[in-house]
Design a binder for these strands. Structure first.
Lengths: 105, 105
DNA sequence: AGTATATTTCGGTTATTAGCTAACAAGGGA
DNA sequence: TCCCTTGTTAGCTAATAACCGAAATATACT
């Protein structure tokens, strides 16, 4: 499980997952979308593979990468379950003195 | 957004979020659940704060930490949206030659 | 002011990660 | 077999992250 979160922590890897959601692609086709060397991209793919989020199927000289949808689903489910938004937490009893500032992005 | 994923990448920080889901707690009470030094824990709390997942409210000499539920909800929503399990992806046309091994954990 | 408690910041060490180039392996075709 | 294409591994450096003890800050109480 930890590996899934670590894999999601890098923007390039999240983008790879987004690309693979559109369609399966070879490592080279994925590389075309980024401005990094092939070995670096290969490393990202390895991490995604080790996290179980993706798997590669050799076709000729290429390796076609696929999203491992079921594990992704499972992971997101676990995340939702961990925090289970919207239940089991009483509403904040009072207005906190320092209202949360929300200046993200 | 990136900060949220980075914050979730460390098991201690995920556990802090889980503790805060149960109830609000001071930094010291959180520290009691871990076997790490207070400065290290303070660093984890700072990252969670910077990611917007958590906020601290001073009460006397303590600082009470709260889950910032709305941002957490928002983040999970974005994640679900990014992958949007279950639509926009045609079923895999053929059985891949190397079935995904699923030996995680 | 002085002391006690709670938490963070500072300074430094060690471990991990991201990136590169160069070298290697696997497959397909002349 | 030889070569070309595609990807991965090896070896390195630079940047980042995790961790600690010591010092600093903030608040409360006497």
């Amino acid at each position: 499980m930890n590996r899934v979160y670590e894999a999601l922590a890098h923007p390039t890897r999240r983008q790879i997952l987004a690309l693979l959601r559109q369609c399966d692609r070879s490592a080279g086709e994925i590389a075309d979308h980024f401005d990094i060397s092939k070995p670096t991209l290969s490393g990202h793919l390895r991490l995604l593979r080790e996290a179980g989020l993706v798997y590669g199927e050799r076709r000729g000289t290429s390796i076609i990468y696929h999203l491992h949808v079921s594990l992704l689903e499972e992971s997101l489910g676990a995340l939702l379950d961990l925090f289970r938004i919207g239940d089991a937490r009483p509403p904040d009893p009072v207005q906190p003195s320092s209202p949360p500032r929300h200046d993200h992005e």
